[in-house]
Structures are given as C-alpha cells and as structure tokens.
Design a protein around this nucleic acid. Structure first.
Length: 286
DNA sequence: AAGCTTCGCAACCGCTCTACA
DNA sequence: CTGTAGAGCGGTTGCGAAGCT
C-alpha cells in the first residue's frame, strides 16, 4: 500500500513539475525582447486594465500600461479592451438577422470589418471578422461556385442575341452613278426615316446631302421599294448572309445597277426621296 | 486511452492614416 | 514639406478545446 501511494505521489510530483516548467516556458516565450508581456491575458491583468479605464477613461492608450501597472504594450491593452473587456460588447452568438445583415454588408462593403461591426450593435470588428472566416466564408464561396455553374449551364442552353447591323457600302470609282456630275455629292445617308416609320418626302431630305470632295468610299444604299412600304421591311427582305456585305450590290447587280444607271442627276433623282438615313437605322438596331 | 485533426477565438503584426511639431 | 508618434484596421498566427480515428 505504502509503495503504491509513493508511486502516486511521484507521478503527481512529476505532473506538477512538468506543469510548472511549461508555465515558465510559456511566460518566457510570451515576453518580447523589450520585456513586454505577450500572449493570453490573465484575470489579474484584466482586472487592472478595467479599473484603469474606469478611472481614466478610454483613449491615450500609450499611458494605459503605465497607469494600470501592466507590463503590456499599448496596442495589446487597447485590443484587450475593445475586443473583450468592454462591457458594451455582446458576446452572445449571432442571431439570424445579424448574420443576414452581415452577409449583405459584406457584399456591399467587402472586408471593411470595422464598418460592418459599426452596423451591428455590440459586435466588434474582430468578432465579426472571426465569425466570417469560421462560418460564412465557406458558405459564400460554395454559393458563388454554384452560381457560376448555373451561369455556365445557361450559356450552353441560351444563345446570345445575334445583332445584325447594316454596314456602310463602298462603291468602286467606276460605279456609274459616281462618275456623273454629282460625284461630289455622295451621301452617307442611305435612308431617311420618319417617326412613324414611313418614307420621307423629297423635301425632307433635300438638305441632307453632304459634299465629300469626290471621296468614293462613302456609304450609300439606294432604296427601291415603294413609298408606302415601312422602311424596315426592305431590310428584312434581305437574307441574313447578305446583310452587311459589300458584295450585296454585285450579287443583286442587275436590279441595282440598272436602277443606278437610270438616275440622270442627283437633283432630280427619284430614289433620293426613298432612301433611308443610315444613322437612324443604326440607332434603332442598337 | 492516446494521438491526430479541425475549429473557434484571442491576440499579434504590419501597415496606413492622421495629427502635430 | 517632412518626420514622428499615436491610433486604428485587416490579415494572420497560435493556442486550447472539441471531435474523430
């Protein structure tokens, strides 16, 4: 019996010695080169800091260690008070409303923890930050991944709108209508539309011709439909593969070349009244 | 029961901002 | 304008507890 008791005492003593040694190591480790204590705060230290702040108030943290009689740096004192000792801190777990608010604020503000905490009464930036990293970050990341997957699925099933824009036409210098006397009055206007979509009268577009000093690369596309046709119907009649191609005129050559060759003079040409304003079309298509 | 891993949280570190001489 | 010190913020680390094998 006596032997057993002795062994128990020995084990107990060993345990105590180990504990004391560990504490001493911890205390040594927790000191910086300047001798200021680091690491976990003890109950006594908390008590000293609390009474100091009760006496002198918050702020002037550089004086806090001296006033409280603590061997801590001012930063450590400030942090301990703001994140733990301050009686206004709400140490209960986050409610659903608070979590919801946090998620919304984080979406809005990013990692601005102090601003987020400012909107959550009783919560500290450190607490908010820790909660985010341990509970919400994974959720948000997985949610984003799911959203990206859904987006990719949608991309596969839904084709984007194909926007077909008419392109300016280029006539060669040999074009019959460019070689006539109105060579200096090639217009970028290919059509004129009115607000109700019907074709404008001659007088409406009389002043829209722009002198370009013989620049033959300007765009123009004559309109050959009758005046009661809606301006856009002619565009729709052109097959998709031909829209925007400069070769359109060549492919439909007989129709258009004949038409152009019939125009004797820009001032009295008939088609001028039936052309559409190019920019107006672009505006509407955009 | 022991060892290992994960989790939560307090605390530290480094940086920036601001006030002041 | 510049340098310095104090204050504050966000990222990161380290430790203890809890959970798992």
């Amino acid at each position: 019996m006596i032997a057993i008791e002795k062994s128990h005492i020995f084990i107990f003593m060993c345990g105590q010695l180990r504990k004391t040694y560990r504490d001493q190591v911890h205390m040594e480790k927790s000191k910086t080169r300047s001798g200021v204590r680091k690491g976990a705060w003890t109950y006594e230290e908390d008590k000293l800091l609390k009474s100091c702040i009760r006496k002198y108030g918050e702020g002037k943290w550089h004086l806090a260690p001296q006033r409280a009689g603590l061997n801590r740096c001012r930063k450590s004192c400030r942090l301990r008070w703001l994140n733990y000792l301050n009686p206004t801190i709400n140490k209960e777990s986050f409610s659903e409303d608070e979590v919801d608010m946090m998620l919304r604020l984080h979406k809005l503000l990013g990692n601005r923890w102090s601003l987020i905490a400012g909107r959550l009464p009783g919560r500290t930036s450190n607490y908010v930050k820790n909660y985010w990293h341990t509970h919400l970050r994974k959720k948000v990341i997985s949610k984003k991944l799911e959203e990206n997957k859904e987006k990719e699925k949608l991309k596969e099933t839904v084709k984007p709108h194909e926007i077909i824009k008419p392109k300016p036409r280029t006539f060669s210098a040999n074009s019959p209508w460019l070689n006539r006397k109105y060579i200096n009055f090639v217009t970028p206007i290919v059509a004129v539309s009115t607000k109700d979509g019907t074709v404008a009268k001659d007088s409406d577009i009389e002043n829209t011709m722009i002198p370009i000093n013989g620049d033959v690369d300007s765009a123009a596309q004559p309109y050959t439909g009758n005046s009661t046709t809606m301006w856009w119907e002619n565009l729709l009649n052109v097959s998709n593969d031909k829209i925007g191609l400069c070769s359109l005129l060549q492919e439909e050559d007989s129709k258009y070349v004949n038409f152009l060759s019939e125009v004797p003079n820009v001032n009295d040409c008939n088609w001028k009244s039936k052309i559409y304003e190019f920019e107006s079309i672009l505006d509407i298509l955009n």
